[in-house]
Nucleic acid binder design. Structure first.
Length: 110
DNA sequence: CCACTGACGAGTG
DNA sequence: GCACTCGCCAGTG
């Protein structure tokens, strides 16, 4: 059972609309845990059970896919899934956040 | 209980 | 724009 902390993070990630991306710090902020970007990354890593959480829509503040320790090539899968949702990467493998970053109208519910 | 590590971010030089 | 440092929290030995 994930702690409330994780549940909040997953809840925010689940709200990211298709074709948009969010940064770790942003997810953390929406989960009401500013500066806890690391926890978001840790939570997603611990998830390891996608299907209900679009973890591939979460990237770092540079708009790039972070390298994971698993080294299983999931980073490539993430990029392919994003491209399938019309998200475009530039030559350096960077997403144009100015165009694809998700900006919720409301701060994570009451 | 202490030390180290890990899908990160922001600040400083 | 790049390199370095500090902060934050959870899991493991």
């Amino acid at each position: 059972m994930p702690s409330d902390t994780y549940a909040r993070i997953y809840g925010v990630v689940k709200r990211i609309p298709k074709g948009r991306v969010a940064t770790y710090g942003q997810v953390a902020a929406l989960a009401r845990m500013p500066r806890h970007a690391r926890l978001v990354g840790y939570a997603l890593h611990a998830l390891a059970a996608p299907g209900r959480v679009p973890w591939h829509r979460v990237v770092n503040a540079r708009g790039q896919i972070s390298g994971r320790s698993a080294g299983n090539g999931m980073d490539v899968v993430q990029r392919l899934r994003l491209e399938s949702e019309r998200v475009v990467f530039d030559a350096r493998g960077t997403i144009v956040l100015a165009r694809f970053q998700w900006w919720p109208k409301e701060p994570a519910g009451s």
